[in-house]
């Protein structure tokens, strides 16, 4: 039987010590969204995410109310897009996939959508490189898409070529952000 002191202790943790559920995440495979047409692939991605995750935010809020604990973020995580877009011909193609991801994330109301990712710890494919090159523009123009590049692991070591490419595009991203913020009057250089 739960005791009064245990109830009090738990609620103290929530109220006074800011205990919360930081994120709930729904993982969605996008492998079955792949199509020979890029537009169809984007449509399939948007449709699948909005179909499977349409109740994620609502259910998260219900769970939060049921148990009296905040759930701070609701997130969707997808198959690494470097795999889903392996047939893309240019960074702009990957950008279109990212735009579809962002539209889907806004439609379902999640805080983040993760998975705009290249896994290059064992060297880059041409598609991986194109995704990495698209990252600065994607992060500049989308609101909820999260991106990452895995350049190393304990098992495989680190791919230094991938690291060099990632770093140079990271600098481009910071430059593009400064230009964007300068134009908007928010100079953060």
């Amino acid at each position: 039987m739960i005791t009064f002191s245990e109830v009090y202790e738990t609620n103290q943790m929530i109220q006074q010590e800011n205990l919360d559920v930081r994120t709930i995440t729904m993982g969605i495979s996008l492998l079955d969204c792949i199509d020979s047409s890029l537009q169809k692939t984007c449509d399939n991605i948007y449709d699948k995410i909005t179909r499977l995750a349409r109740d994620l935010v609502r259910v998260g809020e219900e769970i939060s109310k049921d148990y009296g604990i905040p759930i701070v973020n609701k997130r969707v995580s997808v198959t690494p897009i470097s795999l889903v877009g392996a047939a893309c011909k240019s960074p702009e193609d990957f950008y279109r996939i990212a735009a579809a991801l962002d539209r889907a994330a806004k439609e379902i109301g999640v805080n983040f959508l993760g998975g705009y990712t290249a896994l290059v710890q064992k060297s880059m494919t041409a598609a991986d490189r194109m995704l990495i090159e698209s990252i600065p523009a994607v992060l500049r123009d989308t609101e909820r898409v999260c991106s990452s590049v895995c350049v190393g692991s304990t098992k495989t070591g680190m791919d230094m070529d991938a690291r060099r490419v990632s770093r140079s595009h990271g600098r481009r991203f910071r430059y593009k952000c400064r230009r964007k913020w300068s134009r908007s009057g928010q100079d953060r250089a």
Partner: peptide, 11 residues
Amino acid sequence: LQKSEIFSQMH
């Protein structure tokens, strides 16, 4: 009002 599982899971 909170469902009891949160307390039983914690303690």
